[in-house]
Design a protein around this nucleic acid. Structure first.
Length: 832
DNA sequence: CGGTCACCAGTTTTT
DNA sequence: CTGGTGACCG
């Protein structure tokens, strides 16, 4: 069978054109990943290219992982020697090898955004600048933009001579880079920038990689920034077998430095580049594509594309206006319930919004309707306080060169070492050109330390003990020892709040990550390796594909995903497009929002509902908006809207209908649901969710709690502000009904009685399915002696089951992988 | 040194 | 409306 049989002509072209620069303009849903993976398979299988000579770059770990898997499935051998990696991990890999050539130690540490903030905060203070005027976040944003454009501190200063504020920021930029070098640290932007610098200045290294990477592929090319562009240019400099895949219409990351001209000017930068357009869409109905095409056509300066499909027209796109944001949320949830009842899996429904703050209204409606949902986005696992604390301990134990890490934990839990003492240590350290930790070791020699010196000494002794331990004991034991002996765990346990409980659960999860890590690695895994891996992981991607829940996420997060039913809420002019983009002189701002709208529309496979609210509370104030201009840009031929009859058809209302008034004002003012045709066939007048279908037999309440995932909706609640939902492996109805009911009540209370502190709030907590397991311990469906199957380790026999307060520890003798201990909560063991 | 209260700012996000 | 921060007081 020919490899390319499964491809259309354009895709084939993208696969077969292996030599020279190629730009693949891949419209949404046009089979871009397919083309990319087949291209790799073709290179190896047909062109006999050594896998070792191939580099495939993506933006996210998830995309990299997916590509690896798919290539692996297509290629007979050698897939593991292909570099399939993100920009950042590729750079780390190169820098770990050659950073010494640009003045860093190859053991450099990687700073995340928080680390950078802490450092910048210190610098602003030490340079005597007004922290009100120079906020670390803003300063860092300016610096980041500069780095994305490969502007050095010197150049920055030169460019901004005359602008006082900018010059001050330039000072900070210089100081920041100096300090980073002293700390032997790099931030995420530096990883790219320093690699570019390395390749530019070191001919040997450059030629090595140019020779190695004869074939380069870049995914999501429209998201690259100038530094990344330059990096690719350097790597592809010799062979120029560069294939970039992207869609200028889906460029939505300008705010983080993406340069849309990288794709628009590709042909200019790479003369003779072959341009291939993938316009056949395999995802959506023609009506949805027409809507998308209609909207995006309003942008100027784009590569003309026209999506089409062999599928039929499908349903029309719907647009509904409600009186308030709450009505809108209710209506959307009702529509989803209806869809679910008609057979659409919940996980095939997604509610998309412009800003994270909008999730709250939807969440509340979901909870009120017992609709299981999964919130995507917000603060990620490794940025949670407790996780960062323990990682800071591990960093301190590992090599203590990261001053920020040491300072973070020196008084956590409280050791009576206050800011004054820390300041003295910092001063002493920098005066004597030693690290903060070394300063701690010399605490007794520091004048004016007094009683604090003994405490600092005590701290150093503790750390030294752990250092010893790290060499001899498994990671798990080390982390548990830290938690126990420092009193960190005890402190959380003493708190007794839901929040503290969830932090403990998060720590358990970290431990299980460490255990996993040690199990999967070869002999000598070091603490360093673990920290390395953790540094570049943005998200513990444990989204359980089985969990059947509605997705809630921002339009940005939705990129690359697809759903049967898509709900774009908050289609208000001023919210989307945002007010800022409308008033901005730069037309491009609205164009970026329009691209975002295009991305949202093209996520939908079958049904698309857009909604808007006449009044909406944003930041505590009520705002009144018109429908989004983007709605007006959708061709009438594919759009059904219910807002045009505003005021004229109020009387066509069937006010006696079944609703109990919970939507209050939307009924009274309810002009919104009237419609011109009063022929009775339509049931528009009576509610949100009918839309010309018969309502026969629909009763929303039926499905409550009875579905498979019925018990698990609560997973997501409580993370409404910034909680990343990691998903649960327990959405299968293992809970007893008692536990479920408790959960339900607890949550409802929490939602509707927010002002009463009676129930502990659980906001801003990383809530995982594990917590649910803690409230109703999962029953095991196997016992000692049973044969079970594990995803990674294969089949084995259960040797021992130990019951623990919140979980079962299961020991399994695997046929191939040996004996492993694992927690039932964290591991899916299937009875054979 | 640590806790409480008033004030302020407030898109989108990956690594 | 909220969360994060800084000043002030015990």
């Amino acid at each position: 069978m020919g490899l390319t049989d499964a491809l259309n002509d354009r895709q084939k072209e993208a696969v077969l054109t292996t030599e020279g620069p190629v730009l693949v303009l891949a419209g949404a849903g046009s089979g871009k990943t397919r083309a990319l993976t087949y291209r790799i398979a073709y290179l190896i299988g047909e062109k006999k290219v050594d896998p070792w000579n191939i580099l495939a770059i993506t933006f996210t770990n998830k995309a990299a992982a997916e590509m690896k898997t798919r290539v692996n499935d297509l290629v007979a051998f050698g897939a593991e020697s292909i570099w399939v990696s993100t920009f950042h991990s590729m750079c780390v890999r190169m820098l770990r090898r050659y950073a010494d050539r640009i003045g860093f130690d190859t053991s450099f540490t990687i700073y995340d955004a928080d680390d950078s903030k802490t450092l910048m905060h210190q610098l602003i203070k030490s340079l005597d600048m007004d922290p009100k005027q120079y906020k670390e976040k803003g300063v860092l944003a300016d610096i980041s933009s500069a780095k994305n454009e490969l502007i050095t501190p010197e150049e920055f200063a030169r460019q901004n001579a005359g602008d006082y504020r900018k010059m001050q920021i330039g000072e900070l930029y210089t100081a920041y880079q100096d300090q980073m070098k002293k700390n032997n640290a790099m931030d995420f932007d530096d990883l790219i920038g320093h690699t570019v610098h390395l390749l530019e200045t070191d001919r040997e290294v450059r030629e090595y990689y140019q020779e190695k990477f004869r074939y380069i592929l870049v995914d999501e090319y429209q998201d690259t920034n100038t530094a990344q562009f330059r990096l690719i240019e350097l790597l592809a400099g010799k062979y120029k077998n560069l294939c970039v895949v992207g869609d200028d219409d889906q460029s939505i990351y300008k705010f983080r430095g993406a340069n849309i001209y990288n794709i628009l000017n590709f042909e200019r930068e790479y003369p003779g580049a072959k341009v291939i357009r993938l316009e056949q869409n395999y995802r959506s109905t023609q009506n949805i594509l027409d809507a998308a095409n209609g909207v995006i056509a309003h942008n100027e300066g784009r590569k003309e594309k026209h999506l089409w499909t062999q599928e039929g027209a499908g349903s029309r796109v719907r647009f509904c206006v409600y009186d308030t944001g709450r009505d809108e949320a209710e209506a959307v949830v009702k529509d989803i319930e209806k869809a679910v009842q008609e057979g659409t899996p919940r996980k095939e429904c997604a509610v998309l919004y412009r800003t994270n703050a909008q999730s709250r209204a939807i969440e509340e409606a979901c909870v009120a309707h017992d609709l299981p949902y999964r919130l995507v986005g917000g603060v990620n696992f490794y940025q949670r306080m407790e996780i960062k604390d323990i990682l800071a301990y591990l960093k301190t134990i590992d090599n203590a060169v990261d001053d920020l890490a040491v300072q973070r934990i020196i008084n956590v839990p409280k050791r009576g070492i206050g800011q004054t003492t820390i300041n003295k240590l910092v001063v002493f350290g920098s005066a004597n050109d030693m690290s903060f930790y070394d300063a701690c070791r010399h605490a007794t020699y520091i004048p004016g330390m007094g009683k604090a010196a003994a405490k600092v000494e005590q701290f150093v002794e503790e750390m030294e003990k752990y250092r010893q331990m790290a060499d001899e004991e498994p990671l798990e034991d080390l982390i548990r020892a830290i938690l126990k002996e420092t009193g960190y765990q005890a402190e959380l346990e003493a708190e007794g709040t839901v929040e503290a409980e969830s932090r403990l659960q998060n720590l358990e999860e970290l431990i299980s990550k460490a255990v996993d890590f040690e199990k999967n690695k070869a002999e000598d895994v070091s603490l360093k390796d673990f920290l390395e891996q953790v540094a570049l992981v943005a998200d513990i991607d444990t989204v359980d594909p089985d969990a059947d829940r509605v997705f809630l996420m921002t339009l940005h997060s939705a990129k690359g995903l697809e759903f049967e039913h898509v709900y774009m809420v908050g289609m208000d002019d001023g919210l989307f497009p945002s007010y800022r983009s409308i008033v901005d002189d730069d037309r491009d701002e609205v164009e970026e929002e329009r691209r975002l709208c295009y991305v949202g529309i093209t996520r939908a496979k079958r049904e698309l509902l857009m909604t808007s609210a006449r009044s909406r509370v944003i930041n505590g104030e009520t705002r009144y908006n018109k429908p989004s201009r983007f709605v007006e840009e959708i061709p009438d031929s594919v759009l059904t809207r219910n807002d045009e009859s505003y005021g004229s058809y109020g009387s066509s209302f069937r006010s006696g209908d079944s609703y109990d008034g919970s939507y209050g004002n939307s009924w009274k003012s309810g002009n919104s649901f009237g419609r011109s045709r009063g022929d009775g066939e339509d049931s528009y007048g009576d509610g949100y969710s009918s839309w010309g279908r018969s309502r026969g037999g629909s009763s929303y309440g039926d499905s409550y709690g009875s579905g498979r995932g019925g018990a698990s909706y609560g997973d997501s609640y409580g993370s409404s502000r910034g909680g990343q939902q990691a998903g649960s492996s327990f959405g299968h109805g293992h809970y007893g009904s008692v536990a479920y009911l408790e959960r339900q009540e607890g949550l409802s209370q929490d939602v509707f009685d927010k002002k009463k502190p009676a129930k502990k709030k659980t906001e801003n907590v990383y809530v995982t399915g594990k917590q649910l397991a803690a409230s109703g311990k999962k029953q095991l469906d196997f016992q000692v002696g049973d044969r079970v199957k594990h995803v990674k380790f294969g089949v084995g026999t259960v040797a021992e089951i130990k019951e623990q307060p919140t979980d079962f520890q299961v020991t399994v003798d695997f046929d191939e992988a040996g004996t492993k201990k694992m927690y039932a909560q964290y591991t899916k063991l299937e009875k054979q």
